[in-house]
Simulated assay, not measured.
Amino acid sequence: MVYQTPLLKHEFGHQSKSPTIYVKYESLQPSRSFKFRGISHFIERAISSKPILVDTMKVYSSSGGNAGLAAATAAKSFGMECIVVVPKTTKLRMIQKIEKEGATVLVHGENWGHADTYLRETIMKEAKLKGLTPLYVHPFDNELIWEGHSSIVDEVLLQLKQENIPSENLAGIVCSVGGGGLFSGIVKGLERHGLAESVPIIAVETEGSDVMAKSLRAGERVELNKISTVASSLGSPYLAEFAYQSARKYGSKSVVLSDWEVVSTTLKFADEFNIITEPACGASLHLGYYPDIVATSLERNLTPKDIIVVIACGGSCMSYEELLSFKPAGMV
């Protein structure tokens, strides 16, 4: 089911005084993103808690992004049917990927909110009337999903130990943040290992989708009226309550980048490592190339003894040509 993904040391062209950067490759999960961890765990727990209803269970998702693909992939692995409602803005390439996993895709609404409401208020209600047991998979805001994502931390600590690196050397974990699902999973994992107080999380967002940064500045959760970023996978109008409270409790660091910063990093990473990721993943990778941002965020000097783990969250719906199309006009 869930793969133990590689944790690889990367130089990123740094000088010898920079921290040691490791990248966790979640693009190698079955659905090509970290989303598979939490969603497959969620479905597995639903099956084990209500085995008598398994024959009537059907998976329902409203994401036209990586969560929808993860729901379809996980449902297929459990031999379950899956319906995914996506908004009209969903890329044809992603619809085809979801359908390839055996899911039924319905297109409805102008945005995720419209698609989600239609799924819950119409499609799932009709399913109940037919005697089915709808299993609703939220893209990010569910404790079981965070529990599944938390296995990333288990793996990171094990893999560092296998390289004789003590957990005390782990100076920080960098992750991209949209609605806070991955962030919440990392918090859960650190808490389980007693490291939440000592290992800071650096949350990276893009301008136009920086709901965590705005919430932390406001001292309360805010909701974005408009999402405007090329990193569409980070485009959540709100932040999960647990993510917000955890960021405040543990003093998580917030970094906000421009669209061009993440796109240029994603292109550079593709050129150097022959791996194409989405801009949402490029947001975290950007700090691998620019460790000074990490040091500034942590308010301390970093040395090669300090380990910074960058979670390359993945994503499978981007081409090199599309990344190039994001270049500002006139830029070579």
Rank of each mutant, 00 (worst) to 15 (best):
A72V: 14
T73R: 04
T73V: 07
T73E: 06
A75K: 08
K76L: 01
S77P: 03
S77W: 09
S77A: 06
F78S: 11
F78I: 13
G79S: 07
M80H: 10
C82M: 00
I83Q: 12
I83M: 09
V84G: 07
V85H: 11
V86W: 13
P87I: 10
P87W: 05
P87R: 00
P87C: 00
T90Q: 05
K91R: 06
L92A: 15
L92D: 15
M94I: 04
M94S: 00
M94K: 03
I95P: 05
I95E: 14
I95R: 14
I95C: 07
Q96W: 04
K97W: 14
K97Y: 14
K97F: 15
K97G: 01
I98Y: 14
I98G: 05
I98A: 03
I98E: 00
E99D: 11
E99I: 02
E99R: 08
K100E: 15
K100M: 09
K100F: 12
K100R: 05
E101L: 11
E101I: 10
A103D: 11
A103T: 10
T104S: 11
T104Y: 08
L106E: 14
V107P: 09
V107Y: 12
V107D: 08
V107K: 07
G109A: 02
G109N: 02
E110G: 01
E110A: 05
E110R: 01
N111M: 02
N111H: 08
N111C: 09
W112G: 14
W112Y: 15
W112A: 13
G113S: 12
G113W: 09
G113T: 05
G113F: 13
G113L: 08
G113P: 10
A115F: 06
A115W: 10
A115R: 09
A115E: 01
A115Y: 06
D116M: 10
T117A: 10
T117L: 09
T117H: 13
Y118Q: 13
L119G: 00
R120I: 06
E121Q: 05
E121H: 09
T122H: 03
T122Q: 04
T122P: 04
I123R: 05
I123H: 00
I123D: 04
I123Q: 04
M124L: 06
M124Y: 07
K125N: 12
K125G: 03
E126L: 04
E126M: 07
E126S: 06
A127M: 06
K128A: 05
L129F: 14
G131H: 12
G131P: 12
L132V: 01
L135A: 02
Y136F: 09
H138E: 14
H138P: 13
P139Q: 03
P139D: 04
D141F: 08
D141K: 10
D141N: 13
D141S: 04
N142G: 00
E143F: 13
E143D: 15
L144I: 03
L144A: 12
I145F: 01
I145A: 07
I145Q: 08
W146R: 00
E147H: 15
S150A: 01
S150H: 05
S150R: 01
S150M: 03
S151A: 12
I152D: 02
V153K: 03
V153I: 15
D154G: 08
D154L: 04
E155D: 06
E155Q: 02
V156N: 11
V156T: 14
V156D: 10
L157S: 15
L158F: 14
